[in-house]
Design a protein around this nucleic acid. Structure first.
Lengths: 146, 146
DNA sequence: GTACTATCTCTAGTAGCTATAGGTTCAAGG
DNA sequence: CCTTGAACCTATAGCTACTAGAGATAGTAC
């Protein structure tokens, strides 16, 4: 008999919360697993593989919809690799954009922090810099999604 | 008379959406502005300053709660600069963590993309890499918040 | 048998907006 | 003065990706 994992073990195995797994099932990203006599979810190896796939992709920043796309690609092995490649490339570009953005933010924050000489709030560079947009590199960019 | 801006002009001035301004008012981050005879919001310079402050801080990645803290510091100019400085430092550290994380993700994504030789899905490195966590630098890290 | 933990379903909450519906106000042109 | 169209109003729901809680049942260890 292959080893079946309860939802708690499965969560532990892939490094996420129990509720997250139920959530993935709820939104149709994970198929409903088999159940024990007492109605508890039991995950086989295939299910764990899919869950790992999802988690790994999430850790790489892929949004759930993209993961959905990747899964449907993976489920059709006769198709070409191109689409999956394109998705990964797009994700890479996305990460590059976020990196650039974060680096700009970092520079401005660092400038803010360096200029703080520990006086009164009234002449605090941090507050002042935040209030004055004019010197800001980050101007006219989108807000970083965290 | 000083120039008062309608909400649309205010949004334009600070580069955000009209609804965002109403939202900030709703959650108590912006005080309720004065109104025209026809009940439309009118923003004075002080209000615009506060709004810019909020937007700029948001662009730098500060969460709204932190911005609340900064505002209450700024509103008490007799206090020391230390607290504001500490907040900015914390934010800088946060940005640094995210940068490191994103850089690791970038490396893994790049590896994925480079290895894709454009064959069938069945042996697609992108899919395979996502399914196999073992070579992943990013292992055991939190999922990046986008 | 009794504890204690893990699981179940269902619902609501989180951040930070964004969008929609259905109605009013305002400014410009005729 | 009247009309048209954009901008405004409130209220509510939706978005992503979870996360947390309540109250009930199942499984496990002694």
């Amino acid at each position: 008999m292959m080893n079946l994992l309860t939802i708690g073990r499965a969560a532990e195995a892939v490094g996420c919360k129990v509720q997250t797994i139920r959530y993935y099932e709820q939104i149709g990203l994970l198929p409903s697993p088999s159940r024990s006599g007492g109605n508890q979810r039991l995950y086989d190896e295939e299910a764990i593989r899919r869950l790992s796939f999802i988690r790994h992709a999430r850790e790489l920043g892929f949004p759930l919809q993209t993961i959905r796309d990747l899964i449907s690609l993976a489920d059709n092995p006769e198709y070409s690799c191109e689409a999956a490649d394109a998705i990964a490339k797009k994700q890479l570009e996305d990460v590059d954009r976020r990196l650039k953005r974060l680096q700009a933010l970092r520079r401005e924050l660092e400038r803010m922090v360096e200029q703080c000489k520990g006086g009164r709030i009234a002449n605090c560079r941090v507050i002042e810099t935040l209030g004055d947009h004019t010197l800001c590199e980050a101007k006219n960019h989108d807000i970083p999604k965290v």
